[in-house]
Design a protein around this nucleic acid. Structure first.
Lengths: 124, 124
DNA sequence: TCAAAACATCGATAATCGTCGATGTCTATT
DNA sequence: AATAGACATCGACGATTATCGATGTTTTGA
């Protein structure tokens, strides 16, 4: 199971067996599709400049809480757009939403960013 | 500069000044647009399930090096697609490409993922 | 010199995403 | 009850993205 013909569907990559290419890696330790999908969803939440700035503002706020109207102006985005980004961050488990009266306050979920960062570590 | 009328462009959010909303945060420590754009670009490289699996395969490879033909089969993707994903990861500074003969070998840039993960830490 | 193989690049297509105006929902105030 | 304001949701539009077939480039082996 270690020699050549890695992609029979293409008929290509039938390595000359002499040189060492196409050693299909350990086999088991590979991130499976479902896990990858879940992880990608969380990174996708961080893949937009405005969402990163939202996180920066929320986490650096004195009260560690921010309402939507605090974000619209410094980002130069309209309210529906800000709400949309906030929803993505909440769905990703990164932000926490708490409705108090008319306002909605957002805060960073404790440990959320750290655990995401930890998934980039060399070896678990 | 701490009271109300956060979004004059909309005419909205003229807070009643009695309750505490719309305190526009510290002011200086906010991630600026250029930095956010750059960070987002790197996270965007991690925001695709197949790219995460590519990283998983490359980093768990025995020789810490992988060629394209090793990736096409386990991911179920055609060669041009794999090449496309690899280019994105290389451009983001996460993977290193080395051409040896006919094959191209990829390896994780040392410290690249760690430094990205560190940008998610509580306080710099 | 020629053929074959690995990989990159191009062009096209379907899907997803960011943005915003319009509208709906809910709450507090009058 | 009615109004006003904060926020969420909807629908639309332009831009970006993932995927793949076709093709180009480069290197090895005959």
């Amino acid at each position: 199971m270690s020699t050549a013909t890695a992609n029979p569907a293409d008929g290509t990559c039938t390595a000359p067996a002499a040189d060492t290419c196409c050693v299909p890696s350990p086999g088991e330790a590979i991130l499976n599709a479902e896990e990858a999908e879940l992880l990608a969803l969380r990174f996708k939440a961080l893949s937009d400049p405005n969402r990163l700035r939202i996180l920066s503002i929320v986490s650096s706020s004195e009260s560690a809480e921010t309402c939507v109207c605090d974000l619209s102006e410094p980002l130069g985005l309209k309210q529906p757009t800000v709400s949309h980004h906030l929803k993505i961050l909440v769905d990703a488990g990164i932000l926490h939403r708490e409705k108090r009266g008319v306002w909605a306050y957002f805060s960073v979920v404790p440990g959320a960013l750290e655990s995401l960062g930890a998934s980039l570590a060399p070896k678990p």
